[in-house]
Simulated scan of single mutants.
Amino acid sequence: MTIAFTICSINYLAQARTLGDSLAVTNPEIRYFVGLVDRLDGVSFDEDFRPDFPLVEIHAIGIEGFEEMSARYNITELNTAVKPYYFTYFFEKYPEAEKVIYFDPDIIVFQPLSQLLANLETYEAVVTPHICTPIEDRKTPNELHHLNTGIYNLGFVAFRKSPQTVRFIKWWEEKLRFECLIALCDGLFVDQNWMNFLPLFISNTLIERDPGYNAAYWNLHERFFSEGETGTFMVNEHYPLIFFHYSGYDPARPTVLSKYQDRFELSERPDLQALFELYKNSLITNGNSYYRKYPCCYIKPAKTLRYQRVRKWLKKPVQYMIDQIDTI
Rank of each mutant, 00 (worst) to 15 (best):
A16I: 04
S44W: 01
Y32M: 13
L19M: 03
V34D: 04
S22K: 05
E47S: 08
S44I: 10
R17H: 05
Q15L: 06
G35W: 10
N27H: 13
F49Y: 15
T18R: 04
D41G: 13
F33D: 03
R31W: 11
Y32V: 05
L19D: 08
S22Q: 10
R39M: 13
V43L: 01
D38W: 12
F33G: 01
L19Q: 10
A16Q: 10
R39A: 15
D21W: 14
E29Q: 10
D38N: 05
S22W: 06
D46C: 01
D21I: 10
L23H: 14
F45W: 06
F45S: 11
N27W: 07
I30V: 08
D38Y: 01
V34P: 06
R17I: 15
A16G: 12
V34Y: 10
L19P: 13
G20F: 03
D48M: 10
L19H: 09
V34S: 03
S44F: 03
V34N: 06
Q15E: 14
R39L: 13
V25L: 15
T26K: 12
N27L: 11
V25Y: 14
L23M: 11
E47A: 09
L19W: 09
F49K: 03
D21H: 15
L36I: 00
G42H: 04
T18F: 06
